[in-house]
């Protein structure tokens, strides 16, 4: 039941990504192209997701614990630093270049398109590079 529910949740997420157009780089890039072929659809994806998640989280997080786990795992850092801002900016640049974000590309793998596989391979390598760089920075004493 634990794993089946996770599979179902992944399927709901992926279906939302596919139906909403987030799976489609052409649509994503047009959302960002204000001065050209602008397609405002993706603003509604974010609006729809938040309209459900905001009240949903409020209800769920008022409970004592999740169904299949001992506790809620929420990020404990509240730090707003250069890593957060510059890392997110790099993310946005890459998103604007490729048109895929991770949430769009992982479900896209299931469409058997080679472009999705190429992007996910590069994304995975990028995550490993970031992990390596962070481990290096943590080892040198004067770094933040």
């Amino acid at each position: 039941m634990r794993l089946f529910s996770a599979l179902l949740i992944g399927l709901i997420f992926g279906t939302g990504i596919a139906v909403s157009g987030m799976i489609n780089p052409a649509k994503v890039l047009n959302f960002f192209d204000l001065a050209g072929s602008w397609d405002p659809s993706l603003a509604l994806v974010m609006a729809g997701a938040l309209a459900v998640a905001m009240p949903g989280y409020r209800l769920v997080l008022a409970r004592r614990a999740p169904r299949f786990a001992p506790e809620f795992q929420l990020p404990d850092t509240r730090l707003i630093d250069l890593r957060l801002v510059a890392g997110s900016a790099l993310f946005g640049i890459g998103w604007g270049i490729a048109g895929f974000c991770p949430g769009g590309a992982l479900p896209a793998l299931g469409s058997l398109r080679p472009e999705a596989l190429i992007f996910v391979a590069a994304l995975t390598l990028g995550l490993l590079i970031a992990r390596g760089l962070k481990a290096l920075a943590a080892r040198s004493p004067q770094s933040a």
């Binding site: 157009g21 489609n24 780089p25």
Partner: peptide
């Protein structure tokens, strides 16, 4: 589902790397 990729393969690779590095640091 509609899926069109209007960028060359180099953009998928370069963009993917940046997305991975950026998301890794940006959390």
């Amino acid at each position: 589902p509609a899926l069109e990729v209007p960028v060359p393969m180099t953009a998928l690779i370069g963009g993917g790397l940046l997305v991975g590095i950026g998301a890794g640091f940006g959390g």
